[in-house]
Design a protein around this nucleic acid. Sequence first.
RNA 1: GGCCCGUUCGUCUAGUGGUUAGGACACUGGCCUCUCACGCCGGUAACAGGGGUUCGAAUCCCCUACGGGUCACCA
Length: 413
Amino acid sequence: MTKGKVLFRFAPQATRDLHIGDLRIALFNYICALQAKDTFLIRIDDTDAEANIEGKDQEILKILSLFHIPVTNVTYQSHNRKFHQQLATKLLMDQHAFSCFCTPESLKKHDCTCEHLSDEAVLNNESPFCVRIKRPQHDITCTDRFKGTMHFKKETIDNFVILRVDKSPSTLFAAALDDMLGDISMIIREEEQLNHTPKEIMIRDYLGYDKEITYAHLPSICDAHTTSLKSLLEEGFLPSAITNYLIMTGNETPTEIFDLQEAISWFDLDKISTVTFDINKLRHINREHIKKTADLELAKFLGYSSQDIGAVAKVYTEEASTINEIKPKLDAIFAKKEPLEFQEEFATLRTVAQKAPFFKEFDDLKAHLAAKSGLKGKEFSTPLRFLLTGSDKGPNLGDIYPHIKNYLGEIIK
RNA sequence: GGCCCGUUCGUCUAGUGGUUAGGACACUGGCCUCUCACGCCGGUAACAGGGGUUCGAAUCCCCUACGGGUCACCA
């Protein structure tokens, strides 16, 4: 365990898919760690053995890597289980926690009074029990980078569970301890966990831990929970575009389009505000990132291996915003072509084109084909477009031709 | 309900006492054009409401409303 360093952490749950809200938090933690030149840690929350999904942790790490978030420092909370239990025992011995024999059903009828059971009564009770921490004796004050100083009255904090009946630590308890054991100094997380803060502080207070952890509770993205990262990637959004979007939205950025490296130089956590996920904006940013991607790399995203194809793909960003929208258009260029109209003209044109010499310029090819086929107007342009692109509409042929001219043999076969 | 947080066009954002309240995405009108688009030039559209403070308030103060979150042996 690193001592005396500022540590940032991202703690995804192994119980569900990563959504864009999670990635946003991960990104912000990572960027802040880089800015502070400090360590960034990923801590997989797998304390709830029943809810864990087999392989989900690996999937999460794989996705994070796609977004250039390093997965070199990874720990699992379940590995600390014996420490969690030891510390719970300490709280029990110090009278800061107590055994509770209530069941979820009995709690619906009356409040838990196990706090006041005598030692003897506890020892003689053979029923299963969980361990609850005692509510604090003082009000708790905590500071948040965004919210400032907050006071929580002691009555508002209940005797919450720290060890479940099966003696596994509750998530909140495990997190509070792991932040302590891991010497974490800055926690950036979602606002919905704001009310966990006094409880975590209280746990550490009882244990005599006095290092102050800085909290930053970010206003969350509305609808984030319904937008899984996996599905956005499957729809053909580029990781770099998603990163750009998440950093840009609810923020004030010097430019609209940027990459992670640029963002590190100016990112300011204090400017983040509440946002609603807007797919249109993401689409726009994705288009811009497609244009910025190197031709060859882009071609690979599309399942091709030639630089030229990447270049054509960029031409299509004028009418498509995702990899998945562009791919069928490229595939159509090389597919077998069966036009629904101007079929005779198409056949004539194809024959002429197959015999035509190679032309460097599209205008020259066009002039040659027009002269040899005798076609003009729509009867020429529509089948020509179909012959070259497999579609009756699309970008200017003049913009596409330079990138496909070397594949003409295959295209018009 | 208690506690916490928030509220500028549909969305994101500029604005920190004096602006025709600006920009971007989306939507939309025109031009361009072999098509759909792109591009260019336009357009619609916002300070949640009410009280103060002030010569003057989106901006400062108070109240209300609305929205979000949290109060689990879920995270």
